[in-house]
Each structure stands twice: as C-alpha cells, then as structure tokens.
Design a protein around this nucleic acid. Structure first.
Lengths: 304, 304
DNA sequence: TGATGGCTATACAAATATGAATATCTGATC
DNA sequence: GATCAGATATTCATATTTGTATAGCCATCA
C-alpha cells in the first residue's frame, strides 16, 4: 500500500475521465483488460471500491471522486515533466504551453505567435484556451495571458498594457434595430453578455441599472462566443477596440459613454525563469502584446 | 515520448535523491539493475543524459536538476493520493499529515495529539517538523501550524491565538553571568538567535540596536535548537511563555521590557474540508491549541 | 599492499504483465 | 422484437519486466 505504483494512478485517472475501461485503454494506448487489471490492483491495494462496474461503463464512487483531484495533480506534474524534458533548459528548443482566454487566443495571439515561430522554429507551442485561473500553480501551463492581476504566490507577473473595451454591434443589426444613444435606449436592445460568470461585471452598471446576467438576452460565458454572436448580428456586446478595429462590419455603440479599460497581464511560474525558451516567449509576448494593445503606462511586479 | 511511463519518473526521483542506483533501489524496494534500466529508458526516451555515471554513484546533469522539482511535485501528489486513499473521506480513519515548526512540534503538539489519538484511535498521524512554507499547496502536508498568517491562495486559515514570547535563560547561566536589567547589559550577554533566517527579526530592535544575526553569539535557524541552547545554559534566547512556564530551570529575562506576541495559525488546503478526519483534527487543534496558548481574541478568515 | 565495502554493468532464468480472442451483458435504434 | 454498438469479464499464449548472480571498478583503511 505504501508503494502503490504510480502507473496505476494513471489508469485510474484515465478511467475516471473517460468513464469506461475501454475508453481509458484507448487514450492510454493500452487494452481494456490491462486497464481493468490496474483498477483491480488499486482497489485491492487500498481496500475500497473505486468504481461501480456496469455494462455501460464505470461510475466513480465517492472515494474515487475524492482522489481525483490528486490524480490530476499528478498528471499535471507528469505533463510538465515531459514538457520540460522536451528541450535543454538553456536552448531555444522544446515545448512551451500557454493559456489565454478564448478571445485573446483566437483573435490576438495567433499573429504574434506566428512571428515568434518564425524567429524560433524549434520551439513548439501548445495553446490552451480556457478561462480557468488555477493553471499555473499546477503547471498546467507555462505562461498565462490574463485580464486580471495574478495574485497567486510564486508567480512572476508582468503587466503588458491596458486593453480598451467598448460596445459593438454588426452594422446590419444596427440598420435593422437602430443605433442607441441613451442608456435607456441601450437597455431596450438585444444585449449579449455573460451567463454564470460574475467576475467581469460585478461592479459595473449601465446608467442606474446594475449589470446582471438578466439584462442580457443572449448569454454566453465564453468571450469568443459573445464576439461571434455580435458578429452574427444578434445584438450589442462588448469587444476590445483593437479587435473591432480590424473588422469593418463592427460599429462602436455609444463609445463616448461606455468605454473601460482592462489590464492585460502575463504570468509564469517563478521556477520557469531559468528555462530559456519559456523566458524567451514571455519576453516576446510582453513586448509584442504591449505594442498590440498600445499600452501607455507599464508596470511590472513580482509577488512573493 | 508522449507516453513516458510515470513509473520511470519515480525511479528518476529516487535516484536523484539517493545519489545512486543502489540507494534508489533500496528505497523503492526494487533492485539496482531495474532502476538502472529505468534511467536508461528515460534517457533514451528524452534523448538527453540525465546522470553522469561513476563508480561512486550518479551525478545529476543540469537537465536532471531542472526536472527534479516537477518530479517532486509528482511525488507529493502521489503521496497525497495514497494518504487520501487511506480512509473513507467521511470516516474517522486514515492518515493525516501535519507540519509545524520544530519547537511547536516538539513542545506543544505532542500532548495535544496524544489526546486526539485517544479520541480517534483509527486516525494515524504523520508529523513533519519543518520551517518551510510551501508545503500545503503541493499537498506535502494536510494541515500546517504556523506562526505567520498564511497568505497563499486556496488555503483555509484560522487564527488560534497569540503566543507570548519573551527572553529566557537557564538559571545556572544567570547565576554565572548575572541577570541583565538594561538593554545595554543585555547586549553584552551571550545571545542565542537566528542565523540565515530573516523573517522573525526583520523589524525588531533591542533598544536602538537593530536585531541582526551578528548580535547573536550562538546562531541556529532551528527554533528547537535555540531552545536547547537556552536550556543548556549557553545564553539568553527567546522562548514562548507557555513552554518556559513548564520548565523550572528557565528564568524570564527583562520580561517587562521585552515581550511580544506572535499569531498562531492553522491552515489547510481548501479541498480537504470535505475530508472528515482532516476536518476533525483541524477543529480539534483550533480548540486545544487555542486553549493552550490562551488566546484572547480569535479571528478566522478564508482567503480567495 | 591487500582486504573491504560501496558502486555500476551485464547475462540469464523466473515472474509478471500484456494483448488477442472470445463470451456475455446492456441500451439504443430501426 | 431483432439488431447493432459498446461495455466488462475471462482465458491463454506471448512479450516484457524483473530479480539473481556475477564481474569489474574505485576509494578507504588497516
């Protein structure tokens, strides 16, 4: 029990995430009997059942659900390990994994990363589009581009600039429904915004009306989904000026009244500063993203 | 390369930490040829040498040194995994691992934990005495007793009270060298204090003299080592009142002039709140340690 | 100088884990 | 209601991994 083999937990995680031995076997390039035997071993080793078997798959027990986060930690560390092992620490080669919001990853990053790839063709990039915050500490990613100030310990953070954000709509939509000029008129429009998420809107209001999910008639927590809705002419939604400027069909709505700034931050784990390829991308992003969003004032910090 | 087996990294870590294949084999209950083959596999898999072999053992290359922290992460997660698997989440059985400073772990905790063991004999305890701070996030320990306010994210923290601290010396020492009553006289004494550590003394001063390692003639970063030095009659050093009160040979030095309070905190990872045995110990410690140090005001908090 | 205890490397037999094939069950679908 | 896709369990031959035994190297110490 002391020396439960690490390999078994890998099968455990895959089984839990795939919902079946067969699925786990496929994802691990093993076979179903093998994974089944691994689970058997684990169960007899810890003395508890981990899954309730059924013909349609395996259902994790509450014990298994409790263990799952730790197995994920293990997996994250294992993946970070092979990523780190993918190149010499001091060479411009290997894999770097970065995470960003969907809209940043889809709209802003690609041209910048294309440039980076040209300069450093031996550095491979993995881009994870996610709005979760807890990636860096677990080494789920090496670098994060975020719109909030990173507050976690052991992170190196650098502000690359402030992103201007305003309301936009497709020109066709505005032809159909008119361009509002007052907050009352605006609230009567078809608005696009967040669903469950609370963070970006907690302190906002339009005129006297606080911004809650209820005022939106099209709700989507994925910022890229919102942008797509705006582009499809569904209604009025927020968009970064720098993105809207490239799209001739997007028209600013009440730009003089509604306009705010969000800081854009780069963050990486402190440990990674000595890994050249990661440092290289970090510095490159700081430079290029800063130029892109047109930062006036810059600020850098390092939290303890 | 994608599917580097987890098991291999376990051998890698053991090899690095033991400094030899043979040692690693012993610690893993394997044999030296097996561990050697594991390292071979890893090296050919990532295409780099990890250790320079020699007749006296294996020396990690710089690549290996870079990978080591991640292997430790993996190991910590694996250990947390088997610890969590050691008992049902909802039952008062299994293993709980807690960390505390040396002096707290040696002087204050044992009687309290003895009581806990009487009440919950099926909960096994692992106590790690360490002054490092980074244990909880990696799940190196489940619960920490600390003398600083935990500031890391995802931690549940609770203040159990304020510990009074003052200067003490062994009565024999004072017979030999006299009991100082002024700060000048005090500074002429043989003082016991920290060596490298900076945190506890950064803002302190004795009279007009700032407290730096140089004023101590006996320096030790281990607080228990300092206490032992005080008890051995080496000189004057700090001690918690509650500990000194039990020792008839310890005499307070200038208690009216030098006396300060340090908050004592309990901390645990947020994820563990739903694990009964851990919650049980956390609450028990909050209660008993609070009574022990005699807290006047209590405060609890949860950081985001 | 010679013996000893630590280490790595290698060869071969034994133990172990794996995959292929198959039986069997379940739920969805036509 | 029959059929099909996808799931787990079981068996057995095969492939892989492991341990044992051994040889060789180097430092330390009497």
């Amino acid at each position: 029990m002391q020396n439960t083999e690490w390999e078994l937990w890998r099968s455990f995680l895959a089984t839990a995430e795939n919902g079946s031995l067969s699925g786990a076997a496929r994802s691990l390039s093993l076979t179903q009997p093998t994974v089944g035997r691994h689970i058997d071993k684990l169960e007899s080793s810890i003395g508890t059942s981990l899954f309730t078997r059924s013909q349609s798959g395996l259902l994790p027990t509450s014990t298994a659900l409790n263990l799952l986060p730790y197995a994920r930690d293990m997996s994250a560390a294992a993946q970070a390990l092979i990523r780190m092992a993918s190149g010499e620490a001091g060479s411009a080669a290997g894999v770097v994994r970065l995470t960003a919001s969907h809209v940043v990853g889809a709209e802003l990053l690609p041209p910048v990363l294309a440039e980076f790839r040209k300069i450093h063709p031996d550095i491979q990039l993995e881009v994870v589009l996610s709005d979760r915050q807890d990636d860096l500490l677990r080494h789920d990613a090496d670098i994060a581009v975020r719109m909030t100030r990173p507050s976690q310990s052991a992170l190196v953070a650098k502000k690359v600039g402030d992103v201007g954000i305003g309301l936009y709509a497709d020109s066709d939509y505005l032809k159909r429904c008119g361009l509002p000029t007052t907050t009352e008129a605006l609230l009567a429009h078809s608005l696009i915004g967040v669903d469950q998420a609370t963070y970006p809107i907690a302190a906002l209001s339009i005129g006297d009306t606080p911004v809650t999910p209820q005022i939106f008639s099209y709700r989507c927590d994925n910022d890229l989904g919102q942008l797509a809705a705006v582009r499809a002419g569904i209604g009025i939604g927020v968009c970064q000026h720098v993105i809207a400027a490239r799209d001739p069909n997007l028209v600013a709505v009440m730009p003089d009244k509604i306009n705010f700034q969000l800081g854009m931050w780069l963050a990486m784990h402190e440990d990674l500063r000595s890994t050249y390829r990661i440092r290289l991308l970090f510095d490159f992003l700081a430079e290029e993203m800063g130029a892109l969003v047109g930062s006036d004032e810059r600020e850098s910090q390092r939290r303890e």
